[in-house]
Computed example of a mutant assay.
Amino acid sequence: MKKYVLLVLIAFFALNLSVAQSSCSEYYPLVDGATFQYTSYDKKGKEEGQINYMVTNVSSSGDQVSATMAMEIADQKGNTYNSSYDIHCDGNVVKIDFKSLMNEQMMSQFQDMEVDVSGTDVELPNNLSVGQELPDGNVSIKMKMGGAINMNMNVETINRKVEKKEQVTTPAGTFDCVVIYSETKSKMMMTNQTMPSRVWLAAGVGMIKQESYNKSGKLMGSSVLTQFSK
């Protein structure tokens, strides 16, 4: 199950806040019961699995809104993993609380370990414009497994910028999007990789499409919005 920890963190950054729109969020519908389904494909276009999100526990105070994103990852073999994280909208900026990624279910995998979680919240402002640079984000997890054995995981998103505007059609419909480029760096034990990616965002819906590439710029995988309701 520990492999799902890195998978959740990578999905968290790669999807660049695939959440929902409220009065303080231009791009994301923070509405109780809103659901999103993304289908993932490999570099050859073969379906690999799905990620389902649901917005829950929405509360507001003034121009601040908070909610929980419930997430289920399912692969083609029928394996599933459930997680959740907290989202806050304050004024005109949406933030994901990185510490909430390490919820009770995920932490139960490390009952006999000393775990330290640090990082920065991922931010996305409402006023996106072509050429705009966006703040980096990261999550670092350090685990002491007893004796001299330690295991560290780190996932960060860097070089985030708004590249262009583009219209995209998926099974969920046709959307006018802004395209955000970023690089996701992940480190776990002896594994170290950097994956450039692009995310297509539509106002009132969130992420419509995401593509990941290798260092040479070749497509390695993608996800598209296949169902959406609010």
Rank of each mutant, 00 (worst) to 15 (best):
K3Q: 12
V5S: 12
A14G: 14
L15C: 12
N16S: 09
L17Y: 02
S18M: 08
V19N: 08
V19S: 10
C24M: 04
S25G: 13
Y28T: 07
P29H: 10
T35M: 10
Y38F: 12
Y38L: 09
T39H: 01
K43M: 13
E48R: 11
G49D: 03
G49A: 04
Q50V: 15
N52R: 03
N52L: 09
V58F: 04
D63I: 00
Q64P: 03
V65A: 09
A67D: 05
T68Y: 02
T68P: 01
M69R: 01
M71N: 01
E72H: 07
E72A: 09
I73D: 00
A74K: 04
A74F: 06
A74Y: 06
N79P: 05
T80A: 02
Y81P: 06
Y81G: 05
S83I: 09
S83W: 05
Y85F: 11
C89A: 09
D90Q: 06
D90F: 01
G91S: 03
V94P: 04
K95G: 07
K95P: 05
D97Q: 02
S100D: 10
N103L: 01
E104A: 13
M107Q: 11
Q109K: 14
F110Y: 13
Q111K: 15
Q111T: 15
M113P: 10
M113W: 13
D116P: 12
D116C: 14
V117C: 06
S118C: 08
G119F: 02
V122Y: 04
N126E: 05
S129E: 07
E133A: 12
E133T: 09
L134Q: 02
D136M: 00
V139E: 00
S140V: 08
K142Y: 11
M143F: 07
K144F: 13
M145N: 11
G146R: 03
G146V: 06
A148L: 12
I149M: 14
I149L: 14
N154P: 06
V155C: 01
E156K: 11
N159Y: 07
R160F: 02
V162W: 00
Q167S: 15
T170M: 03
P171S: 11
P171F: 04
A172L: 03
A172I: 01
D176L: 08
T184A: 04
K185M: 08
S186M: 08
M190Q: 14
T194S: 10
M195G: 15
P196W: 00
L201D: 08
A203W: 03
A203G: 14
G206K: 00
G206N: 02
Q210Y: 06
Q210I: 13
N214W: 01
K215Q: 15
G217S: 11
K218I: 06
K218H: 13
L219F: 04
M220F: 07
Q227C: 06
Q227E: 12
K230I: 00
